[in-house]
Every structure is written in C-alpha cells, then in structure tokens.
Simulated assay, not measured.
Amino acid sequence: MYVGSTGERGLHELVFAVVGRAVNQVLAEGGDSIDVTLTPDGGVRVTDDAPGGSFEAAADSAGPGLEALLTTLHMGCRAPVDRRVAHVGIGTGLFVANALSSRLTAEVRCAGERRVQVHARGVAVTSPAAAGPASGHGTAIAFWPDSEIFETTRCSFAVLAERFRQIAFLNRGLGISLTDERPAGGTRAVRFRFPDGVRDFVAALAAETGSALDPGVIGFEREDTRMAGRMEVALLWSGSREGRVRGFANSRATPEGGTHLDGFRDGVAAAVTAYAREQRLLAAGDPGPDADRITDGLTAVVSVALDQPEFRGSTRGQLGNTEVRLCVAESVREHLADWFEEHSEQAAEFVGRLLRAGRQD
C-alpha cells in the first residue's frame, strides 16, 4: 500500500499526499496558498490557488491533466522548466487518494467557470462538467477516506498542523491553513506562513530550548547544477553542548541523515579548522575538530530540493545522492568563512568554545 498503513499513520499519509500535490502545483504555477479543511462528515478538503489547474492536459504540457492523475498511476510529477517543485508528496498522490476514498470530488476554477467531477472508490462517476460561475482560480480536492480500508478515518488536528507548519518553514512565503469544522464547540484553525523560510525554522527550534546566542541565525541558499538542485541552510550556535541539526530533502524529513547532513558537517568542520589555524588557535600539527562532533551546540536546518532525489532504506529516511555531499560542504565552508571574517569577535568565541570542548572529550 502506497500510504504504508491502514491505521492513523496511513490516513495522515493520504492527506499529506494530496496536500503535496497542491504544494507542488502552487510552487510550479506561481500560486500563493493552500487551505485544508476537516469537515464534520469525515471528509478532507484541500484547496489551492494555483492558476494552472485543469482536468485536461494542456497542449504545451509534458504532464497529465487532473483527470488522468486521479484515475491513472503516474510516478513522479511534472517538473517545470524554470522552477523546481517541492515534491513534498508521493508522485502517485491523487491516484492513491482516489483509490482509497469512498468518495472524491475534484473541482477546478478557471476562466470564470467552475468544473466538477465525482469519483467513487477510484472510478469516475461523472465526467468533468460545468457547475456554475467561479471567481479566481485553483483546484479543490475533497475526499472521504474509505472506512472499509482504514481502521480510523478521523485525522489528528495536531499531527496535520505540525506537518503543515514544517512544510511552510521549508517553502519560504507559502501560506498553509488548517481548519477543523468537527468540534462541537466550534471551528478551530491555524495558519502558517514564514517569510524567512528555514531561518525562521531555526529560530523556532532555538526558542524551544531558550539557548540561542547572539548574533542570531546565519543562513544562505544556493543553486548548484552539479547536484541538479538547490540548498537552503540556516544555523546558530547555542549556549549548550546539545546539537539539533535537522535535514530535509524535497521537504521530506530525513531522520536517518544522508549526504546533505554529511556535507554540512564537513563544511562546518573545514571552516572552523581553517579559521582556527588562521587565528593561531590551533598549532600547525594539531588536528582540527572532528566532523562528527562539530555540530555540538549547533541548531541547524539543512534543506535541499533536487530534481532527482535518491532515498535509501525501506523508510526512505536517508538521502543518498553522492554529489550533494561535496556541494553542500563547499557552500557551507565558503559562507561560514565569509561570516567569520565579518564577525571576528563572535567567530573567535564560537570557534574557541568548540576547540575547548573537543579537548575535554
């Protein structure tokens, strides 16, 4: 099963798959926001404002239209020529959601018209048909997970909210809202939008521990054709020995690490060692800090978006693209070297503390 479980985890994966398609569509077509609603009758409605939604494939498009995505197994997703999509959901998302739902309704708003198509357990009940006028543009997918398949069809507001918050952090400026219409006491809702992306993510992680030090978050982003993708990195040094470094590939968490995190550690270690030798904090024969321990006291987020991500293991929790390690390492080393030069006082404090900690181990 593509969602991995018939329990609550699989139910949430089903929602994430549909939301992932919406995120990819918004980022690819220039939209702004996504709204997710949990309805009182057990349904989930995912609405986006991307202008490119259509039941039929456009003549100049290399990808399938919405109707084909709902009824035919398509691996992967269309990558626009000039803008990389986030790939936050599995490429088969709409097909799987349709097959595992007792009912699904797809709606497209375009050119002042609203068109709707209804499905039942993966089979089209109606053809796309005009359903009246509409303002704006975008796509809405409403689906009701099949109670004959899933052990529960009641989504957790907290689980969905945490994942949508994460997606918003990792896709700077994207707005995602979650509205729950199920509580008897009234509707509850949250909305996420982070103008500084992973910098805001690192600041939020640091705020949870209250251990951040001045001068705050250091961050950069860079495109690198060698890895056919871009990276966005943010970090800060904290007042504790505990490190909190989190990695993501195409907005998917990589709890088992991978080449992007290996490259991050390599880059930090190289920058710290070079600075320490330049400032004579390390003698010529002294070894530099161990790359495996260099993240002690660091809070960081390393996010890469790749045209062809390669994941290892059955849980796909580890990034395997070999070229990513060198690209991230070089970029981190160069950016930190510039930062050390511009912030000499803070650099001496941080690097000195890292070296002292290494000698005590």
Results as ranks from 00 to 15, higher is better:
Arg325Ile: 02
Pro309Lys: 11
Pro51Tyr: 00
Ala120Pro: 02
Thr259Pro: 13
Val202Leu: 02
Gln360Ile: 13
Glu310Thr: 01
Val23Glu: 08
Arg154Ala: 13
Gly197Cys: 11
Thr126Ile: 04
Arg45Gly: 07
Val108Ile: 15
Gly258Lys: 15
Glu113Arg: 15
Gly42Tyr: 07
Gly320Thr: 01
Ala142Asn: 02
Ile90Met: 10
Ser211Ala: 14
Thr47Ser: 11
Gly285Met: 03
Leu27Thr: 10
Arg84Ile: 02
Arg265His: 14
Ala59Asn: 04
Thr187Arg: 14
Gly52Phe: 07
Glu148Ser: 15
Gln117Tyr: 01
Ser101Tyr: 08
Ala337Cys: 04
Glu162Gly: 00
Leu319Ile: 01
Pro40Ala: 15
Glu208Ser: 09
Glu242Val: 06
Gly31Glu: 13
Ala124Tyr: 12
Ala68Glu: 12
Thr295Arg: 07
Arg359Asp: 04
Thr254Pro: 01
Arg78Thr: 15
Ala17Thr: 03
Val125Leu: 10
Phe264Gly: 00
Val15Ser: 13
Ala348Tyr: 02
Ser156Asn: 06
Ala97Ser: 08
Phe248Gly: 03
Gly65Tyr: 00
Arg188Gly: 00
Arg191Glu: 14
Phe220His: 07
Asp41Val: 01
Phe16Tyr: 07
Ile176Lys: 05
Thr315Pro: 00
Arg114Val: 02
Ala58Met: 08
Thr139Trp: 09
Gly7Lys: 12
Leu205Val: 07
Asp262Trp: 10
Arg83Val: 12
Pro183Ile: 13
Gly43Met: 05
Gln346Trp: 15
Arg163Trp: 06
Val15Trp: 13
Arg115Phe: 02
Gly52Ile: 06
Asp41Arg: 05
Ser344Ala: 14
Glu56Lys: 14
Glu162Cys: 05
Arg188Phe: 05
Arg325Asn: 09
Leu38Cys: 00
His260Glu: 07
Val46Cys: 12
Arg172Cys: 10
Ser156Trp: 06
Val302Tyr: 07
Ala120Asn: 08
Val159Asp: 11
Gly136Thr: 09
Arg114Cys: 01
Thr72His: 07
Gly122Asp: 09
Pro145Tyr: 01
Gly186Lys: 05
Pro133Asn: 00
Ser344Phe: 11
Arg163Pro: 02
Arg226Met: 07
Thr105Glu: 15
Arg165Glu: 10
Gly247Ser: 11
Asp338Trp: 09
Thr92Asn: 11
Asp292Leu: 15
Arg359Val: 05
Gly263Lys: 06
Cys155Arg: 06
Arg246Cys: 15
Glu221Asn: 15
Leu170Asn: 11
Ile218Lys: 04
Phe264Glu: 01
Gly257Thr: 05
Arg265Gln: 08
Met231Ala: 12
Val3Tyr: 14
Arg182Val: 03
Arg325Trp: 08
Thr273Gln: 07
Val15Leu: 15
Thr6Leu: 03
Arg78Gln: 10
Glu242Gln: 09
Ile90Phe: 12
Pro64Asn: 08
Asp49Thr: 11
Pro51Glu: 06
Glu8Ala: 13
